[in-house]
Design a protein around this nucleic acid. Structure first.
Lengths: 185, 185
DNA sequence: TACATTATATATCAAATTGATATGTTGTCA
DNA sequence: TGACAACATATCAATTTGATATATAATGTA
């Protein structure tokens, strides 16, 4: 068996605040959560079905609209499940940095190639960082709100690490810049 | 189709330096590479088989030992494949921080619970950081070696980001420390 | 010497996940 | 009216994980 479905916890965490459709859940994940977790329709819809069978969530008929919309509501059992997970401080943090992988194996291609990977990474991070700073500005005035405090912590994590990434990019660019080093010396 | 098998590139990158068995490859990945990529036997062995069929690697009989050992050697086609990947600066960097996920949804449990997650994370990072500093010390004297320079860059990435993590842990602990805040004010 | 434990080594499998694709509806702007 | 973007559910092959099975060689220890 692979590890328990983590996507279940993401869904339960979101449903703890409001009833949502699978599509809504995907949008929430693509927002601030995408900084540290991702989820696709291919995992969300099957997870909702299976959690419904387990009694962790329940379907709510949508009377209002004409369009098919299946809202999910978290049950007491679902809340218990979420809390049990939150109270366990064990956590697996998995990173897959293709940029770093390319850099690690970059010794057999020329430095200009490695440099291009660093610059592409730098651009990506710079863009995301300005979005995070916007999130931070919105959360800062209301840290007495327990939820906002916790959202703030994750956004602050993103900002701190992204700033470190950019600092590293500067160092990496400097080290890779001396492309003619061997021929000069 | 899911995205191309990235594990192939890890294997080709390793085989570019020396012939290895599947078991060796796993050990290499569990070393310095584990900072930014992971791989299991369940992906390594099937990848080796399929790459052999594609002509990217070839089996080398092991004459010496008595134990079953299948060494793999990278072909010219395999090297071309590796270089093509290295020369493409596009890269997807996927993070799965369960710690951050727990913190994001921590607003509905007490702060002591969130604090425990931060402390567990801090301990994990502190331990890994000292290992990285050891790697760095070993690589630093020989940065003229093109491979070492590239290894150094990834180790330096790890150190810079882990130091940022620890800085954030301090901030997070401070913000979560005021557990009686509401009742005091 | 005998025994237990750890490291070496290949391989497979169910479960989880991704990324793509299929299918159709509703709202908006020109 | 027509085009396009956003909404919404669902499925699938390919990939990956984490666990397990199986077996041999080396090492420590009683």
């Amino acid at each position: 068996m692979a590890k328990d479905r983590k996507i279940d916890m993401v869904i339960l965490g979101l449903l703890a605040h409001e009833d949502l459709t699978g599509y809504d859940i995907k949008k929430r994940i693509d927002g601030a959560i995408s900084l540290f977790w991702k989820g696709s329709f291919g995992s969300i819809y099957p997870a909702l079905s299976s959690m419904e069978k387990e009694g962790l969530v329940e379907k709510k008929a949508d009377a209002t609209g004409k369009r098919e919309r299946i809202f999910y509501h978290v049950t007491d059992k679902g809340i218990d499940c979420l809390k049990a997970w939150l109270e366990d401080e064990k956590a697996t943090n998995d990173l897959k940095y293709e940029t770093l992988l390319k850099l690690h194996f970059g010794g057999s291609v020329d430095r200009a190639t490695s440099l291009k990977s660093v610059v592409a990474f730098e651009e990506e991070i710079t863009e995301k960082l300005s979005l995070l700073q916007l999130y931070k500005k919105n959360l800062e005035p209301d840290l007495d709100n327990e939820d906002h405090l916790h959202y703030y912590l994750t956004v602050s994590f993103g900002i701190t690490t992204y700033e470190a990434y950019l600092k590293w990019c500067e160092e990496a660019k400097k080290l890779l810049a001396h492309m003619d080093k061997i021929s000069i010396i």
